[in-house]
Write a protein that binds this DNA or RNA. Structure first.
Lengths: 245, 245
DNA sequence: AAAAATAAGCGTTATTTTTACACTTGCACA
DNA sequence: TGTGCAAGTGTAAAAATAACGCTTATTTTT
């Protein structure tokens, strides 16, 4: 089982003739992208109705095979843009899913990524053209292949990551209130946090710029909106910090 | 550029005929394994002189193509055993290295793993039969392809991981003294730690069983040996903890 | 128009954790 | 027998975290 006409992007005789390469069995390589968003005080997963066989019309996360001309990371960026129209999105590698029979159609390994996006109005359009749906994370349906596993691995990773990176901001709109931010952390951590201590800690990090506007959607008094301070945020993200709460 | 005779492990007509699979370009998939050990108060990297072209006789970490009949994880375990004879070793996925031209010989993506091993006498034999060498991490030579990158990513990961998992034990012999353990952490963290506070913290975690023996190799007084308590250790490893120091 | 309800926001105290630091012990070797 | 060297112990100050009560702004109800 070999594949002689597989592309080589180097023509040195040594490399081309190396039995080392020609004896290896090629495998299909895919990327899959777990997209999380936060809306209506809930963490949500973006899923798509698959358009092709096999598993046509079943729910799945977005994915694609990796093209010979693109890196694995680039493939993930491409896929994300194809389905959501979004660029410059927070995305991180999640892991490699490489079980022999994970895909009954062929031997396919998948490098999974997870992306966090801000749910503004723009996205929604793109979503609708692709038969996509935002599922509340507590009500994710059966997805094809090992995609449910990818989703739970993403949550696990998000949970860990939130402790040492101010990751929450990737999910919130540009302007948000402290109670909104707290709610997000409570969702990720799966437990309630003390209002006063949360505020104190997040403000002491000095990554928030207070605005003069208020958001009145969730209370009578209204909560002041904040925006995060890009440069301070970068600093914190790089050096890491402790956000255990 | 396609590869029609690529193996399928499912014969359902739907799957076999799916253009979805047959149009995808297979890619070579490799695993690479970054093996770290700790000896003589130093973190070391296990490297091998590559036996095949291209890059014959250059230094590299161990690796192999993934066989159609094995999972990616299994391939990593196989490789580790082939080269070191060791089984049941701590090993974790490091990441996917998928740049288009990372390997001039062919389009190869590599899923890297890192393994931590305890350096007893046994290993050394296996190492010698494979033209291998333990390099002090401060003196790692130029390795082939992107293997140097993999090594530095491993160190980064080890550094982060050590903060919330008692990972150090994977590297020490069964019996070790507290100063030895401290030295390991100092090596990973790249800075010195306070003797008294280190001891206090590690003992308070209650994962160490004190033995009656002493290790006299590094001082006249001799340091008591400890062994880690498997069950307590597991608990800690699962729930995570904070070992910032 | 006053009262009730609701969530935002602020400040203090108690507790725990972390940091800093100095002296004593056991043993080998001179 | 005493000197050197790393192992080992205790304590106090500082910082971070956790717990908790009251006030404020606004809308809804009476």
């Amino acid at each position: 089982m070999s594949c002689q006409n597989f592309s080589m992007n180097n023509n040195s005789p040594t490399a081309r003739n190396a039995a080392y390469y020609t004896e290896a069995a090629p495998i299909l390589v895919a990327v899959d992208c777990i997209i999380l968003g936060y809306d209506d005080d809930r963490l949500k997963l973006l899923s798509f109705k698959r358009k092709v066989e096999p598993f046509q019309n079943e729910w799945s996360v977005i994915g694609s095979f990796v093209n010979p001309s693109e890196s694995v990371d680039d493939a993930a960026v491409r896929v994300l843009e194809e389905y959501t129209g979004l660029q410059n999105i927070f995305m991180e590698p999640l892991g490699c899913y490489g079980a022999v029979d994970r895909d009954p159609g062929a031997r396919v390994i998948s490098q999974a990524f997870f992306a966090l996006i801000r749910l503004d109005e723009k996205e929604v359009q793109t979503v609708e053209t692709h038969q996509a749906h935002w599922f509340d994370l507590s009500a994710v349906p059966k997805l094809i292949l090992d995609h449910n596993q990818m989703v739970s691995d993403t949550l696990e990773k998000l949970y860990r990551k939130a402790r040492y990176r101010p990751i929450g901001f990737e999910l919130l709109p540009e302007k948000f209130s402290i109670p909104q931010l707290q709610n997000l952390y409570e969702t990720i951590y799966g437990r309630t946090l003390d209002r006063r201590n949360f505020r104190k800690k997040i403000l002491s990090m000095d990554i928030l710029d207070k605005l003069d506007e208020k958001n009145k959607s969730s209370s009578r008094k209204g909560a002041f909106l904040y925006r995060f301070n890009q440069s301070r945020y970068q600093e914190m993200a790089e050096k890491g910090f402790d956000f255990e709460m």
